[in-house]
Design a protein around this nucleic acid. Sequence first.
DNA 1: GATGAATGAGTCTTCATTCAT
DNA 2: TATGAATGAAGACTCATTCAT
Lengths: 228, 228, 228, 228
Amino acid sequence: MKKKARINPRKLPTQERSKQLVDSLLSATANILVRRGYEGLTTNRVADEAGVSVGSLYQYFPNKESLVEALIRRWSDGLMETIADHYLEVRNESIETAVDTMVRAALDSTRVDAKLHRILTQQIPNVNALPALELFNRRMSERVASWLELHREELEVEDLHLAAEIVVMTLAGLSDYALIQRPELLDSPSFVQHLSRLVLGYLAPTRASQLSASAGKRRRTSKRLAQS
Amino acid sequence: MKKKARINPRKLPTQERSKQLVDSLLSATANILVRRGYEGLTTNRVADEAGVSVGSLYQYFPNKESLVEALIRRWSDGLMETIADHYLEVRNESIETAVDTMVRAALDSTRVDAKLHRILTQQIPNVNALPALELFNRRMSERVASWLELHREELEVEDLHLAAEIVVMTLAGLSDYALIQRPELLDSPSFVQHLSRLVLGYLAPTRASQLSASAGKRRRTSKRLAQS
Amino acid sequence: MKKKARINPRKLPTQERSKQLVDSLLSATANILVRRGYEGLTTNRVADEAGVSVGSLYQYFPNKESLVEALIRRWSDGLMETIADHYLEVRNESIETAVDTMVRAALDSTRVDAKLHRILTQQIPNVNALPALELFNRRMSERVASWLELHREELEVEDLHLAAEIVVMTLAGLSDYALIQRPELLDSPSFVQHLSRLVLGYLAPTRASQLSASAGKRRRTSKRLAQS
Amino acid sequence: MKKKARINPRKLPTQERSKQLVDSLLSATANILVRRGYEGLTTNRVADEAGVSVGSLYQYFPNKESLVEALIRRWSDGLMETIADHYLEVRNESIETAVDTMVRAALDSTRVDAKLHRILTQQIPNVNALPALELFNRRMSERVASWLELHREELEVEDLHLAAEIVVMTLAGLSDYALIQRPELLDSPSFVQHLSRLVLGYLAPTRASQLSASAGKRRRTSKRLAQS
DNA sequence: GATGAATGAGTCTTCATTCAT
DNA sequence: TATGAATGAAGACTCATTCAT
């Protein structure tokens, strides 16, 4: 961490070296998790897959648990970034567009690395996963909350923090459930549409009702009338 | 307890007896799951906790997996009943009331045996839990769908089956997430209210917007005006 | 075994009954041994196959070992009888014919119930099998010895008892080995012929040499000359 | 023994080391087999006896079966060598001498490690032992056959391959049987003599009859006359 | 630092045997 | 006597972790 500096100009200064090692260990962990599930995850296997010795693994991770924790951290950081990108584009769009983007972002984040996602959210003893997931959701909620602030006037909810949490949990919950039990839905346009309406109908039911009204008009006038 | 007494004419010579045994094994499984998590679940421990020998356990369950499966089955059956009760009352109520009841039912089912619920839905290798959970959700969806049929005219969604699935997954996802990450919410009235609005805003945004309009009126007239 | 006598004239007086039970237990044992090998033999399985309860099994056999011992006894008695029959016919035949009969008898006894034979002679922990097998071979030797006595004058061995033992062990050993490693041989006429020559060449080489001489003559005169 | 010394330039860092380990595991297996039989053979016991942990055992042998298989292989290789030595000396001897040597070799190979020999040939579930034993006997037969070729002109059998197999099986069967049921015989000179006559009488009855004739002459003239 | 052989507690599972009914 | 549920010791095998090199 602080040893020889310019004298021994190896390609990989210790710090860099160990970072790579840690990385390949985490990737190996992810691969094995995907291929053989949590029950099939053994430290020896991870070391093997990463091309290092078990000993080295234990140099960087005090135990198996911490290995998984680190992977979860890395993974949720990845998710954050993916989602952050989506959110940046959205700041100035209409609520409808923004909600649509959020929904798509949630589903996308699930789809990418779907199997790993699923294992990490469902199969890992929660003791490990919880803190990281909590952090992830807290950050997401904050982000959504601050976005909601920008549109406060257009929204029909008051407790924006609670609303943000609910939106985040709704989207996370739904994409997880869909991933597990109805993966086809993840790619269905009407699923996306429904989720958008779900969120919009929560945040701004009036706008949502207009939306469905006009949608209905296009298709079934009688229905619209009945509702008016 | 076992010596003959004419009052209790040897009712449980075999069938009843083994049912009790199975029951105590499943309860032991649940207890251990709650106390030590899935990783801490061993067949010997279960037998011990149930006060029987491992051998007896294996007389009734061919392996550890089947033990967990049976527990999941028992648990999801319990849930079904709990929820079924709620739903029966609701058939003829207004949508608003019905949605409210559904929300409360979802949260209730999570709260009862909360820790077990959490472990069963999150921590068990999905291979075991999935079929049972899928069945459970399918049944729930059907039930909700048939309820939606009754109110078709008042709803602003068309694909009632998809809508039912979304409602079920939303409520399940949200209560699970809340249970894990924000258990306080489960007992918060405003959480219940928000969830009701979420669902109502999805199924019938027009009604939801009236609801929030009047709710808003009571509290902040300015807001209502801004929205009109 | 001694209870109620004439009063209760059941079809199967206790003695007969238990004999049948013992019999079906032994047959079950044999079946299982054949189907699943010694490692697959469990007392519960035997009881099941015999259509009785384990408890009953233990009424008649103090433990698993004794069950197998009894089967071995029954089986070797069967062998004895089979072979005895063959021997009776032979008393007054020529040595050549008698030897031939003995050889065929040995091979036959192996072929009948071959799989059981093999398991009983090879796979059973010898502690069990040995005494019975010893007894069997001792009896066989005696029988052969007494037959040899009848032909003492024609034989070129002196220690008839040793010779009898050697003949018995040779035939037993050869048929067992053939059964295990070259079962095709058991049905090959030339194998029978060779074994006959083996035994005859031992007991009466002069007669054997005449036999092979004439056999050779028929086929390759040159050979015979070369040897003369 | 393990600290560096220039004299023994770290010869056994891995390969040699593991070879030793494998060796001590096999020896432990043999010991236990001899002391407690196949039923008493447990992997934990083997590891214990070998002075290593079970874990180490499983580093070298994937399961109990393979351990036994390896032992059988090692043992049959040993036998092969022992016997090979005997055979080399014999190539140019007379048939009588050669047969005598073969007989002694067979008995010797049984005597050495007699108890292990017996367990390995009789008590091990054949699934394990068979392939190795078959290989062993096939090799033996080939060796004997090629020896028979050299003496083809003096022999009175034609199918040398069958003859070789029969000789091998006879000797193996007889020494095994003798070992089990009459171990005293293994050390009796007359047993050796009888076996030699058995084999010689099979391969070359004419020579055998001369042998017994002259042997008889020395002892009992009357007998010889009776036979002429 | 890196290595990977060695460790051994702990898992699931079987099965001979008992004994209350 | 018969039954068969219950027992629990014992066995094969795994894997997180350590430590001598």
